[in-house]
Amino acid sequence: MQMFDSIIDLLPESIKNALEGITNINSVEEIRLRVNRPIELITFEKKFFLDKTAKKEDILHILNMGARNSLFAREEEIRNGFITVKGGSRIGFTGQAVRLDGNVKSLCNFNSLNIRFAREIKGCASFILPYIHNKDKLLSCLFIAPPGAGKTTLLRDLTRLISNGFDGTQGIKTGLIDERGEIAACLEGIPQLDIGLRTDVLDNFPKAQGVMLLIRTMSPEVIITDEIGGESDYEALIQAASCGVKIIASAHGECIEELLSKAYINKIIKHRIFDRYLFIQRSNNILKIKKIYSSSLKEVDVF
């Protein structure tokens, strides 16, 4: 609820008023604004439009409030098409590119906006724990699920559990590379969400640089990061694995074939960086394991 309130604070009065009559407001996952079109709400149960048309000013208002009137200080995030706001929720947007020497330098004239609510569900990763251990040893795992399935929520809770310890096992030194600022939801460097007692966070840090920095400075036993898939991620993970650090990460995808079709994830699989590939799905708002594969891509029984 607190998370929801922090997002509501960013909205212009007219949108706040339009949301007042919504009964299942706590189940809202996304609010989408498109200039001159009705505002769309996506809840756990359904998608529907509000009787309110979004204006260009509404989008700018939300972005300014989200960036605390400091969009200029978020150039990198703007170039990537999203900003992370207080509480860890993410505001994605589209607009006109500002180009310099053929590269996109920034965005302007924003025309669409998507507010994705960050959710902290403590205990939601408990069902994963039996699959990520082998004789009390933590395994390197890659969680795969389609966008919006709850990978980040799962990773956050898993970070907390691994860091604090669970079922009698002792917590371990955990390094978190929160490139998009969604897992720990740091505000001025301080995590806003519970990521465990032994977790060291690199906020808004590129994974490639973050992995080596963490290994050199904090000697983590496990490094947790989200949404891998690029060339630099592959190189960073190779480095981490060669240092003996366990890795827990997430990636977009729905099946093993899709994963293999991605060039760098394919390389990661070939290098056997991960001991387990866990395909996650969400049905009736509950996270479940769809399939598990071993490092050699043999299917592991889900009990």
Binding site: R68, N69, S70, F72, A73, E75
Partner: peptide, 10 residues
């Protein structure tokens, strides 16, 4: 400040 230490305007 803007040039060398971009941070929130506040």
């Amino acid at each position: 400040s803007l040039e060398y230490r971009p941070q929130d305007i506040s």
